[in-house]
Design a protein around this nucleic acid. Structure first.
Length: 505
RNA sequence: GUCCCCAUCGUCUAGAGGCCUAGGACAGCGGCUUUUCAAGCCGCCAACGGGGGUUCGAAUCCCCCUGGGGACGCCA
C-alpha cells in the first residue's frame, strides 16, 4: 500500500441504480475522475445492482445520462465495455460464487443461520422504525430458513487492522470489533461488502475513492482482500456533504437528484466545478477552473476532512413527498445568493452565444414561447441581451419574456411612477413620433437618436427611457432601451407604445 | 447505547509553530459608473467553539469540555 500513485491507477465509481443520480455521488465520481485523468489511469463505471428488482434499464439510463451531462466520461463500463466486464454486478454472480467457494475451501467462510442473536439491539430497531426502514424485508431475513455464508474475519489469532487512508491518514480498528459478516444471503445473493471487494479485486482497482460512510467497514474488507490473497488497494475516503441545516444530505429533504439542477438551468460545467470544490481546493485562490486545470491540480492529500455544507438559500422546507417538478421549483427558489448560482452565472457569461442559445432553447420552449416563429438571428440577439443579466437558464427564459409577448398588463406602480407622474405620458407621445420618423432601426442609430432627443428636451435619459420601457415590457426593467427597441422591431415597438398610450390615457 | 472521526468569517475555503493586526471567494452592506435591471470597479462588515497545557512564540502540537458527523443489517 503506497501513498504515491502507481503509473496507471484504476479507479471506479459504483452507484446503485435507484432511479436518480445523487449529487453526492457525482462529487465522488468527480474525484475519482480527476484522479484517474491526472495519472493517466482508467476510470470505470460499475453498476452495483445486486439488490435491484425494479426497472433497471431506466435507472441505469438516469445514471449514464446524468454522468454524461455533468461532463464525466468513463473508460470502462456500460456503453463502453472493457476487458474486465461485465460491469453490472447482477451479471457477475458466478464470480461471487467462485470467490465464496474459494473462501469456503480455505476455511475462511462457513454456512450458518443468523447467529449473533435473533434479535437486533433495541436502539437499532428504534432507529430503523424512525427512518422508516423497518420493513418486512428485515423481519423476513431473520426468519429465512436458509443459512447464509459468513466470512470468518480472523484467521488464527484475532488481530487489529490498520490502514493508511490517503485522506484520513492512519485508521485502525481493534480485533474485537471486527465480527464475522455475511457474504452470501440465504437466497444466495451477495452482500455489498462481498460483491464490491470481489469486483474491485477482479477489476484491478488500485484506488478506492468513496464516501466516508464506508470507512468503518474498510478494515473488515481488508481482511477479505487478504483472505482472497489479493493485494490491497489504496483507500481514500471522502468527507460527507451536509445540507444547509448541517445534516447529512438526504433524498427526502434535499434536492439531491442532478436532474433537478439540470431543470433549474444550471450549466454542467458550473456544477462540476462547484462540486469539485466541496471538500477540495487547489491550494491557491483559484475558484473558477476548467476541467483540465482541476485535473492538473488535483491531489487526494488536499481533500479536507471536515464535512462540507452544500448551501442553498432555503426559504421554506422541502416537503418529503414533493415530486420532481415541485423539487425543481423549490431549488430554483433556493438558488439565488448561493455560490453555485454565482458560479453558474460566470459560466453562462463565458459561453459562446450559439452554444448558449442551444442550451436555452428547451427552457424557452418550456415557457411556451413560439420559438419557431422567431428567426434564428433574432433569437440569438434576444439571448445575448440576457446573457449577462441572468444567472441560470431558467431565469434567462423568464427575463426574455417581453421579446415573445407584448405586456398583458402594466405594473401599476410603474405606470404611476413613470407615466402618470410628471410628463411621462407626454414624453412617450413625443418619442413615439420621433421613433416613427426613424428609417434606420439599428441599435446604435436608435441610441444616437434617443440621445439627441433627450438633449433637445433638455431632460435626463431616464425620463425618456423609462416610459418606453414600461410601454414595451409593462415594467421598469429591461435590457438597454435602444437594444430592446431594435430587437423588437419598429412595427412591434410602435404598436406597443400605442397600446400603452391608449391603456393609460 | 457502543466505537470512531471532525471543528477557521453566515457559507465554500487558504493556513502543516514565527510570513497571521488570519488571506481569497460567495452572500450582505456602502460607494463609483449608469438608461432601468444586471455587469464592472472600489470599499466595509465578518472567523481560529471553550478551557487548560507545551513553547521565547500556537489557528497550527497535546489534554479535557462542548458541538457536529459517521459506523455498528442477510441496505448499498
Amino acid at each position: 500500500m503506497s501513498a504515491s500513485a502507481p503509473l496507471k491507477p484504476r479507479v471506479r465509481f459504483a452507484p446503485s441504480p435507484t432511479g436518480y443520480l445523487h449529487v453526492g455521488g457525482v462529487r465522488t465520481a468527480i474525484f475519482n475522475y480527476l484522479f484517474a485523468r491526472q495519472h493517466g489511469g482508467t476510470f470505470i463505471l460499475r453498476i452495483d445492482d445486486t439488490d435491484t428488482k425494479r426497472n433497471l434499464e431506466e435507472a441505469v439510463k438516469v445514471i449514464i445520462d446524468g454522468m454524461k451531462w455533468v461532463g464525466l466520461d468513463w473508460d470502462e463500463g456500460p456503453e463502453k465495455g472493457g476487458n474486465f466486464g461485465p460491469y453490472y454486478q447482477s451479471q457477475r454472480f458466478d464470480r461471487y460464487k467462485a470467490a465464496a467457494e474459494k473462501l469456503e475451501k480455505s476455511g475462511r467462510a462457513y454456512w450458518a443461520k443468523k447467529q449473533i442473536g435473533d434479535k437486533l439491539p433495541d436502539w437499532k430497531i428504534e432507529k430503523m422504525k424512525k427512518a422508516g426502514k423497518w420493513d418486512e424485508d428485515l423481519a423476513k431475513a431473520s426468519q429465512d430458513p436458509n443459512p447464509a455464508l459468513y466470512f470468518k474475519i480472523h484467521e488464527g489469532e484475532p488481530q487489529d487492522v490498520t490502514l493508511e487512508d490517503a485522506v484520513w491518514g492512519r485508521y485502525s480498528r481493534p480485533a474485537d470489533v471486527l465480527n464475522d459478516y455475511v457474504l452470501l444471503r440465504g437466497d444466495g445473493t451477495p452482500t455489498y461488502n462481498f460483491a464490491t471487494v470481489v469486483d474491485d479485486i477482479e477489476m484491478g482497482i488500485t484506488h478506492i475513492i468513496r464516501g466516508e460512510d464506508h470507512l468503518a467497514n474498510t478494515p473488515k474488507q481488508i481482511n477479505l482482500y487478504k483472505a482472497l490473497g489479493a493485494p490491497l488497494p489504496q483507500f481514500a475516503h471522502l468527507p460527507m456533504i451536509h445540507n444547509d441545516k448541517g445534516e447529512k444530505i438526504s433524498k427526502r429533504r434535499d434536492p439531491v437528484a442532478v436532474t433537478l439542477y439540470q431543470a433549474c438551468g444550471l450549466q454542467p460545467e458550473a456544477l462540476f466545478n462547484f462540486l469539485a470544490l466541496l471538500g477540495w481546493s487547489p491550494g491557491d485562490d483559484r475558484e473558477i477552473m476548467t476541467k483540465d486545470e482541476m485535473i492538473a491540480a488535483f491531489t487526494l492529500e488536499r481533500i479536507k476532512l471536515a464535512p462540507a455544507q452544500f448551501t442553498l438559500a432555503r426559504k421554506r422546507d422541502l416537503k418529503p413527498e414533493a415530486d420532481e417538478k415541485e423539487r425543481a421549483d423549490w431549488l430554483a427558489e433556493s438558488l439565488p445568493t448561493t455560490k453555485l448560482e454565482w458560479m453558474n452565472g460566470e459560466y453562462m457569461k463565458k459561453l459562446p452565444l450559439p452554444e448558449l442559445v442551444e442550451r436555452a432553447r428547451p427552457f424557452l420552449a418550456a415557457q411556451g414561447y413560439a420559438l419557431d416563429a422567431m428567426p434564428a438571428e433574432k433569437l440569438a440577439q434576444v439571448v445575448k441581451l440576457e446573457q449577462e443579466r441572468s444567472r441560470t437558464l431558467r431565469q434567462l427564459a423568464e427575463n426574455v419574456k417581453l421579446f415573445f409577448a407584448a405586456p398583458a398588463s402594466y405594473d401599476p406602480k410603474a405606470v404611476e411612477k413613470v407615466l402618470k407622474k410628471g410628463d411621462g405620458l407626454a414624453m412617450l407621445k413625443d418619442v413615439r413620433a420621433m421613433l416613427d420618423a426613424q428609417s434606420d432601426w439599428a441599435p446604435h442609430v436608435l441610441e444616437e437618436a434617443l440621445k439627441k432627443f433627450v438633449e433637445a428636451k433638455s431632460t435626463k435619459f431616464g425620463n425618456v427611457a423609462q416610459p418606453i420601457r414600461v410601454a414595451l415590457s409593462g415594467a421598469t426593467v429591461s435590457p438597454p432601451i435602444h437594444d430592446t427597441l431594435a430587437v423588437l422591431g419598429k412595427a412591434e415597438a410602435l404598436a406597443r407604445i400605442d397600446r400603452a398610450l391608449a391603456a393609460v390615457a
